[in-house]
Amino acid sequence: MTEHDSQTRARRRQHRTADRTAPPNPQRRLRADGGQPPVVVKIGGANAVDPEGAVDDIASLVDGDREVVVVHGGSTAVDDTLERMDIEPTYVETPGGVTGRFTDAETMEVFAMVMAGKLNTELTTLFRNAGVDAVGLSGVDGGLLTGPRKSAVRVLEDGKKKIKRGDHSGKITDVNSDLLTTLLNDGYTPVVSVPMLGEDDDEVLPVNADADRSAAAVAGALGAELVVLTDVAGIYADPDDPETLIDSAATPAELESVKAAAEGFMTKKVMAATEALEGGATAVHVGDANRDAPVSSALDGAGTKIE
């Protein structure tokens, strides 16, 4: 994850060097109080996950002067609005057997509306009601989450392997951590939502990206601790046995066994955790969104800690 530095900003900077107030290298910067790294909290979009507990907990953290960046998902709300608008989503199966929604142009428009317009506004409002000076941002704003757009995907259709083009998704390679740092320095709490900004041949456009991996990219770029909230207590060696919750993985071998243990949607969380650590995050916690004080208890060691 490299520092965001588009041509535009570079050009602007030439004119404004004297004006610029952000620290020269925001990555892994130390706080003025010599304190802890920022926390990036991924709040789920699954219907089972109620954000209220997390919102109040994050309000307490911010009140205690911890810097927090929130990243949220919400694909079920996108499904609901697609249905409401009588748009039939195209589901495709990957050669690996994973089913996903194909994001064509029309779906992308609804995706941006629901994520950046509905859910981000709702969540930002929840935070403001909890006393947090929240600022909602999408990955498009200031090129916050930028990377190559991917139009082609490999799918299985009627048993045939195919290349399907016209997908609106992308892979985040650049995070504008300057923008987040500036807002954090001014006491704001950024609430970040996909879409990301996809770079195509000769243009940029909003495209879909996984919210877990978006949170991972942000945590990496800020050198932050990442807390991924989900609807289970953490990662289990045996998902059917609650006694087998994995407390922590601190060595490559332990991480490998976590990867092996993770099944289904948890695979994506572990993949995101790995990307966050590789990108520069100090630690990743996977914890239960529905317990009391879900963020601070995850930071305190509940759930699964990967570092």
């Binding site: 998902g73 990957t94 995907v153 892979k171 495209v207």
Partner: peptide
């Protein structure tokens, strides 16, 4: 030649 594509999905 078919492009190599990572199997990653959006939200």
């Amino acid at each position: 030649t078919a492009p190599e594509l990572e199997e990653d999905w959006g939200e």
